[in-house]
């Protein structure tokens, strides 16, 4: 079902329209929220709350506008606020694996599940060491694959602010790399 049809259905009071939107975007939305909150249950709560906000305010939604950016904006903002409230941020560790290898070396052998699992855990820890806002910037840029201009549009902040946030997040990641690998 097209989003427009779902929204019109929802505007008419039929929650079948909401169900269609939930089915279509829930996985991407929960994954996005998870990468920001690093808490599966919290991510589901965030996305459910976002859908309920859509439901409550659907009469004000302009049907000429695409639904996905509008919805993802709510999800990202809510996830950042939830992450901030939860205060989930991992302290830096000294025994972390080599970021240089993570980001620049050849891809691991797909057969080597142990290594792949370790790499995932390392990236997860690196993300947790970022602030929720920096995590959101990284997730939007590299998971949702949005351009800086698209991020600017989605968050309604100037492109320069987006560039600043990404710059700060990348800088933080580089700092982790230096700290964990002992490179100055």
């Amino acid at each position: 079902m097209e989003d427009l049809q779902s929204i019109k259905q929802l505007k008419s009071g039929d929650i079948g329209g909401l169900e269609a939107l939930v089915q279509k975007y829930q996985v991407q939305a929960v994954r996005t929220a998870y990468l920001i909150t690093h808490d599966r249950a919290l991510a589901e709560d965030v996305v459910q709350a976002a859908y309920l906000r859509v439901y409550r305010s659907i009469e004000r939604f302009d049907v000429r506008r695409p639904f996905a950016p509008y919805f993802l904006r709510i999800v990202v903002n809510e996830a950042v606020q939830a992450a901030r409230r939860a205060g989930r941020q991992m302290p830096l560790a000294d025994d972390a694996p080599d970021w240089d290898m993570l980001l620049n070396a050849d891809a691991p052998d797909p057969q080597d599940e142990v290594e792949a699992s370790e790499l995932r855990e390392t990236v997860r820890r690196a993300l947790l060491a970022l602030s929720p806002e920096q995590r959101a910037a990284i997730v939007m840029r590299y998971y949702l694959d949005l351009s800086e201009m698209e991020m600017s549009d989605l968050l309604a902040v100037p492109t320069g602010t987006i560039k600043w946030r990404l710059h700060a997040a990348r800088k933080q990641l580089r700092g982790l790399l230096q700290r964990w690998t002992g490179e100055g």
Partner: peptide, 14 residues
């Protein structure tokens, strides 16, 4: 590489 890791983590968890 960052993209791939994020996709991987997201799929693994959700």
């Amino acid at each position: 590489r960052i993209r791939e890791y994020l996709q991987d983590i997201a799929r693994q968890e959700i």
